[in-house]
Amino acid sequence: MKPMETISQLSRDEVLSRVRELAGKYARLISITCVDVGQLFELIYVFEDELKMVCFKTEVPHGTTFPSISSLYPGAMLAENEIRDQFGLQFDGIAIDFGGYMFLSHDSPRKPFIKEVRVKGAMKKDEGESG
């Protein structure tokens, strides 16, 4: 079986220099994913360089901002706006800023992907499944 992709852990500054390096090599941005892990957000950057995936992540404390990479990768604008919608994490210097309302409307629940937000009908987190 093919091994899982390795996601390396980088610091905030290392992320930005790594993104600059990848932009210089004409690597393509695939996605930016955010995960709420309690007091921190994990930001996971995925690029494609010569058909190979390059993945790395960094940690961002709740209540802080993170630099946008949309000046290097204009397509990052949508992913960063989506993360702001879902988690409330703001990106500095974003190309088009929807202000937290790209997908969500003004009467939607705010930051719905934060783990503290309880959703009606959620299943209990207990047993595993089988099939």
Binding site: M4, E5, I7, I30, M53, C55, G128, E129, S130, G131
Partner: peptide, 14 residues
């Protein structure tokens, strides 16, 4: 394939 278990870890697929 039959399976049983819990999902632990992270994976990226394209």
């Amino acid at each position: 394939t039959k399976w049983k278990g819990r999902v632990r870890g992270e994976v990226i697929k394209r």
